[in-house]
Simulated assay, not measured.
Amino acid sequence: MTRKPKLGLLFLHALPLDGSMWAGQSNLLPNSTYMPTLYRLGNSIEAWAAAALTYAREERLVVVGCSVGGSCALEIAAAHPERVAALVLIGTKANRRPDPQLHASVLETIEKQGLEAAWKTFWEPLFAKSARTSVTNAARDIFLRQSAHDVANGITVFHTRPSYGQTLSTFSGPVTIVSGGEDIAPGLKVSAEQANCAREGTLITVPDCGHYVPLEKPERLNEILRDVISAQYGF
């Protein structure tokens, strides 16, 4: 019987957070889990993906991305499909619709009003209305640890990333699309369309949850990830 290669977990974070947003998932595959912070890895999603992949030692990876991290995961699948055993995309929009006005507005808010104002305007509303204050405060603290320069770079990478609809539809492995039931970016409709587009796509909806499933519902996400990992090993 052929022995399956050791599996690694590569987590790619959402804006405007960093790799620490995955703390609740850190024990799923001990010593084979990677949570890089992306902002300083380059000025494009391609550069982020190439650099993030160097963190992982394992031959095969379950690549998990939230929001822009999901786009980074799709870039890895496009550039190095042989390394990707499965994709888990959380609150991810594979196709980019240019929105230069929003791009400029976020950068201007950070520059003129500061990070706190940008958080309240653009990211705090992405949490479910029922999200615990402790959860949103913890996310805000992660955000405020970032420099304005790094966040601005992340915003520009997000707004200039390619579209990955074709990658999503041609990737040969399993793709699990996870959406908070109250996520407005991209929302359930887009998430369902993406699951249907994938060759081996599954949509999982997490009730009473917004955009940041790893923070809002970490245990539910861990259940989902355990199932994905087990499927790779044939359990």
Rank of each mutant, 00 (worst) to 15 (best):
M1Y: 12
T2D: 13
R3M: 15
P5G: 06
L7V: 08
G8E: 03
L10K: 04
L10S: 02
L12R: 03
L17C: 00
A23T: 07
A23Q: 08
G24K: 02
N27M: 11
N27L: 11
L28H: 00
L29Y: 01
M35W: 02
P36V: 05
P36T: 04
L38E: 05
Y39R: 07
Y39T: 06
N43E: 15
S44M: 11
I45N: 01
A47F: 04
A47L: 13
V63C: 02
V64F: 06
V64W: 04
G69A: 03
C72W: 02
A73Q: 00
A78I: 10
A79C: 14
E82I: 14
R83C: 09
R83Y: 06
V84M: 04
V84Y: 06
A86P: 08
V88N: 01
V88L: 06
T92M: 03
N95L: 14
R97I: 12
P98I: 06
L102W: 01
H103K: 07
A104N: 03
L107V: 01
E111Y: 09
K112A: 13
G114P: 07
E116T: 13
E116G: 13
A118P: 12
F122R: 02
E124K: 12
A128Y: 01
K129E: 15
T133P: 08
T133W: 11
T136Y: 01
A139F: 00
F143G: 05
Q146S: 15
A152T: 11
G154I: 05
V157A: 02
H159R: 13
T160I: 12
P162D: 06
Y164L: 13
G165I: 08
Q166D: 13
L168R: 02
V175H: 02
I177L: 12
S179F: 06
S179D: 13
G180C: 09
I184C: 14
A185N: 14
P186C: 10
P186K: 00
L188K: 10
K189R: 15
Q194D: 13
Q194H: 11
A195C: 12
T202A: 11
L203V: 09
V206L: 05
D208Y: 09
C209S: 10
H211S: 11
Y212W: 10
P214A: 02
K217R: 14
P218L: 07
E219N: 12
I224V: 09
R226V: 11
I229T: 06
S230A: 15
S230K: 15
Q232E: 13
Y233K: 14
G234M: 09
